[in-house]
Design a protein around this nucleic acid. Structure first.
Lengths: 161, 161
DNA sequence: AATATTATATGCGCAATGCATACAAATCAA
DNA sequence: TTGATTTGTATGCATTGCGCATATAATATT
């Protein structure tokens, strides 16, 4: 138990968040056209905070505000070319840090950790907001058989949302 | 691998940091008399940022600046009565969240996770600063056979810090 | 004794957040 | 349809927390 505590902290240390910007880019790379409100819930910010974050990212030339097709008050956020490059770089660094940390594990341990992680995740995700929250910095290319998506499908079939 | 990514994120979500204040209290609870500079390195803040944090915590009545015995320029930070209560509450909430997240694991998996965590941690800690960094929110009472301390002892005997 | 390093403190500006408010579009009620 | 409620976005305002540069005192080094 105490060891797991420390492990969780260690994993936190491994992902040096420079604020929510990196997560926003990763999320938009994952799901282009996401509206501000969904981004807000995924990042856990206030509304104005999210709008200002989007302002900064637009000013920085990494994302664009498009008008949404389905909802004319909503904004459809998209990565620009430069934003996609940034996003790829963020995911690459992340991947590199993680594999560096995990390289001390032998294949058997890695397998065990994967199983355990899947179990923990499935138990943790109950709705769409929490799913996006967990997937904030996930690399959709690397995340085969995403357990979050699986957990969501289950709860969808079970209780219709 | 992809699952481990998600797992690390999930663990992050579990520990809702309200900024470095909680970690500061936990660290001071762990090692009373700690000077500002060590706190600074453990929290990864700038110096002024740490001083201001200490100011706020002092103003909030949870810690006190004492004068250090060994070094007359240094400050010895101590928790007040109220600070110790806060610290205990923080560690308790943390403990509760973690055990809640881990309760889906069977004893065998818990054991495996512990082993894996220990291995990862030992590999991650190379010096005293990193050790404090990892132990930021650890509960010293719960952390029996702290792998960080063990890793430090090893490197000390090996290369005399 | 003179210099360099270390620990702390503070003035200053900035960046990021939240609250309250406003407005437009969509949904719901009657 | 009309009117009321909810939802998505935007902005003015204040606050907060941070880092940089600088200053001072104590320790370490030479």
């Amino acid at each position: 138990m105490a060891l797991s505590d420390s492990f969780m902290l260690a994993t936190q240390e491994l992902a040096p968040e420079l604020g929510p910007a990196a997560a926003a880019l990763a999320l938009l790379g994952h799901e282009p056209g996401m509206p501000i409100e969904r981004l807000r819930r995924a990042l856990g910010l206030s509304h104005s905070g999210t709008v200002r974050l989007v302002d900064r990212l637009v000013a920085g030339g990494v994302i664009e505000r498009h008008s949404s097709e389905q909802d004319r008050r909503a904004v459809a956020l998209h990565l620009t070319k430069s934003g996609e490059e940034k996003c790829a770089a963020i995911l690459a660094v992340r991947q590199q840090r993680i594999s560096c940390a995990l390289k001390v594990l032998d294949p058997h341990e890695l397998e065990a950790l994967g199983k355990i992680a899947e179990k923990l995740l499935k138990n943790q995700v109950h709705n769409l907001d929490e799913a996006y929250c967990v997937c904030r910095l996930c690399d959709p290319a690397a995340c085969v058989n995403c357990p979050v998506a699986a957990a969501l499908n289950e709860s969808e079939t079970a209780q219709k949302l």
